[in-house]
């Protein structure tokens, strides 16, 4: 999972390559698994997007389940798809396309039900619902593409933070993460907050700076890795991140 100049195979590139080299079943399996993992990570972005577009909870859930089932059932991602370079752009166009033909949803659900069903458990749906307060859900006025990108960016960040927190907790440093995470966006060098954190964690001023650096460096690496997983060519990671950054700013 490193990006040190070489070309690691990202999840999305695996998915795309499997479509091109048809035949080998083990490659297929890996690709399928990669796609499932990606869907697992980013379905809240799609859900949030649909809700903001005015869909009801039930409606959005059904739509996503059908959409992913359909996606996972596909033999390959069409090589001609112009948006296939980025998983995000690909999902956006595909979802729009899928939602436009709502009757196909019925059809897909009927066909599904087997291994291809994408399931969303109720608990995580509640979690996602909680992060959008009901009155602000519908945002019909906004540009759909930007809405989608914004949800995507939030999902990416949350996912990265959750994983990072899990890592710290696994190392028995859950408290460190809780105390240090504000430093991911804070830049004040010697505020009183720092002294407080240092004393709470029992660290010297230098040790605190080391800890903050470690957290930032790990976070940055994870974020870039996560972005890289969604592009075909890892060299595009920077551009993809910039794209999401711009979407959040508007």
């Amino acid at each position: 999972m490193t990006l040190a100049g070489r070309l690691p195979s990202t999840r999305w590139s695996l998915v795309l390559r499997a479509g091109e080299t048809s035949g080998d079943s083990s490659v297929r399996r890996v690709a399928r698994q990669s796609l499932e993992e990606l869907c697992e990570i980013y379905w809240p972005a799609l859900y949030g997007y649909l809700r903001r577009r005015g869909r009801s909870r039930q409606d959005a859930e059904d739509l996503i389940q059908g959409f992913f089932a359909n996606l996972l059932e596909r033999e390959s991602i069409a090589a001609a798809d112009a948006s296939r370079g980025r998983f995000r752009a690909f999902l956006y166009t595909s979802l729009d396309h899928y939602a436009a033909n709502e009757h196909r949803r019925e059809h897909a659900l009927k066909r599904g039900g087997g291994a291809a069903t994408f399931s969303i458990d109720c608990g995580s749906l509640d979690d996602v619902d909680r992060s959008f307060s009901a009155d602000a859900l519908a945002d019909q006025a906004g540009d759909p593409a930007t809405l989608f990108d914004r949800q995507w960016a939030l999902c990416l960040i949350r996912q990265t933070l959750v994983e990072l927190e899990r890592d710290y907790q696994a190392k028995g440093k859950g408290e460190w993460f809780a105390k240090l995470s504000p430093m991911l966006t804070s830049t004040d060098a010697d505020g009183p907050s720092r002294q407080q954190i240092a004393s709470e964690l029992g660290l010297s001023a230098t040790a605190l700076k080391v800890a903050i650096h470690r957290l930032r460096a790990t976070y940055r690496q994870r974020l870039l890795d996560a972005v890289a997983q969604t592009v075909e060519n890892p060299a595009d990671t920077g551009r993809e991140r910039q794209c999401l950054f711009d979407a959040l700013g508007e």
Binding site: L154, L156, R158, L184, T185, R216, Y219, F245, L248, G249
Partner: peptide, 14 residues
């Protein structure tokens, strides 16, 4: 979680 209190834009490009 407390994480999202932070500005997502700053989190994406700190």
């Amino acid at each position: 979680s407390a994480n999202l209190v932070q500005c997502p834009r700053c989190l994406l490009r700190p």
